[in-house]
């Protein structure tokens, strides 16, 4: 029996609350146990992907830079809400390599197609 698949849904901007950071911590923890989750950036969650983040002034790490390190932890499946991307005038060129924009039908399929959903 193969390991259960986990979809981690992250839907908040990176710095206003600790949810986005907690989602990353959960993803890294799962990856450390050889259960790398699929990540879905939904709604305001796509704002985590903005390039050019410099959080040194608010005393924390650039969220985008931590996201960029995910492939080294074995997490390489990133899906991004294309409607939210368009709403914030972001394009595929702004995304980390390997991140795939997906439409609503594809998001519904992701939600239904994983064994577990972890929401943040």
């Amino acid at each position: 029996m193969s390991a259960p698949s986990v979809l981690l849904v992250t839907r908040h901007a990176p710095y206003g609350a600790s949810l986005a950071r907690s989602a990353l911590d959960a993803a890294l923890a799962a990856a450390a146990f050889d259960r790398p989750p699929t990540l879905l950036f939904l709604g305001d969650g796509v704002l985590q992907l903005l390039p050019g983040q410099d959080a040194s002034g608010i005393g924390t790490r650039s969220h985008r830079r931590v996201l960029d390190s995910l492939p080294l932890y074995g997490i390489d499946t990133l899906y991004v809400d294309s409607q939210a991307l368009a709403g914030h005038d972001l394009t595929a060129a702004d995304l980390p390599p390997g991140a795939r924009p997906v439409d609503d039908a594809a998001i519904r399929a992701l939600l239904a197609g994983h064994d577990h959903i972890l929401g943040f």
């Binding site: 849904v9 939600l111 239904a112 994983h114 064994d115 577990h116 959903i117 929401g119």
Partner: peptide, 10 residues
């Protein structure tokens, strides 16, 4: 409901 639907999105 949670038993019937193993996948939940809050």
């Amino acid at each position: 409901l949670t038993e019937r639907y193993p996948r939940q999105q809050a």
